[in-house]
Each structure stands twice: as C-alpha cells, then as structure tokens.
Amino acid sequence: MDEAFDPQLIDRLKSGDERAFDVVYEAYRHRLFAYLIRMTRNRDVAEDLLEETWLRLVDRIETLRDGMKLGPWLFAVARNLFLTHVRSLGPDIGDAGEWTERADEGASPFDAVAANELASRVERGLAAMPVSYREVLLLVGVQGLTPSEAAAVCELTPEAMRQRLLRARRMLAWWLNARDGAKMNEGRHGGQRTR
C-alpha cells in the first residue's frame, strides 16, 4: 500500500499538510483497528490504542525518515502500545507474549460481521492462539505485510519470523482440524447426548 503513496508524503506530513495526513489516515485506520481489536479482543481498548497510535504519529512526525514505509512503522507503534497495555494490566495476566484469551467465552465482536462460518471459525482460532503467534498471522496473513516487514514490527530476525509464521500456521490449522473433529463427533453422537 505504501508503494502507491506519493514519495513526498512524509515530507508533506512533516510540513503539516492536512491532505497528506488524510491519505495516511484513510489508508490505515481500518487496518490498524482490525489489527488492534484482534490483539486486544476488546473494542474500547482497541479504540483507545488506535487513537494513541495516531497521536504518536503526529507527535513524532519529525523523527520519520523520508521514503520510509509508514505501514510497518504504524503497526510497530500499535503493537508497542498493545504490549504496554498488557503489561499495565499487572502480573495476573502473565507475560504479554504468552497472554491468551479464552476464545469460547461469549461471542467475539467479530461474530456479528463474520460473513461465513469459516471466517467465524478462523476468528475463534486466532483468538485462541498465544499473542506471539496471533500477531504474526495478523500482520502477514491478514494485513498483508511482507515477512521481513512483520519481522521488523515484531523485532524479530527474518529467520525467527519464518519459524514463528510456520508454527502459527500449523497451530491455526491444528485448531481448525480439532474443531472439525469435535464437530463431526458431536454430529455422530448427537443423538445419544442429553442436554
């Protein structure tokens, strides 16, 4: 997406050009929100972190280098804000990298918009994954960042990113397969069950 941008965009942003800001804002606001809500699993927190991400952009506009890609920079800021938020929740939540939320607790915010059953199941699979695996799938699989861009966002080496992506894909596939198996068994033994 960055490639389609005006190469002078960062320069225009630095000079306070409102239209340049609008170009960036429209290009990334939905993508950043989609990333943040899938990381936080909480609409209010995602909205707060999204606002903070944009304020960081305008606050640190002078530190941007001409010609740099804004997408990975914005995702890195959003990720750091998310990690800070998780840490602020205290030790009860555990380490940010290992923090997981129970996917089956109530309907997720996406259930309402999930166009089909598969998308809904993938959403639940993502929600059930540890954050460190979920984020790489979100950045590469959902947001379309290249693995090297995602590695920079997650502060990983390209090789570590490749390994993590592989494990994350396997984990999601395993989760979906396990669900399929459970559903099939449920269907097979459905008649014998009592509720």
């Binding site: 996406f110 918009v113 993938v122 979906l176």
Partner: peptide, 18 residues
C-alpha cells in the same frame, strides 16, 4: 484443505471502528 482455510485469513471481514 489447510491451505484453503489459511487463505481465509486474507478474506476475514474488516471490523470497523466507531
């Protein structure tokens, strides 16, 4: 089957902010 389902990642609906 696995590839097909993982491809779904790029087609997930985009939740909209307020």
């Amino acid at each position: 089957d696995e590839r097909w389902r993982l491809d779904t990642l790029s087609m997930l609906p985009e939740p909209r902010a307020d």
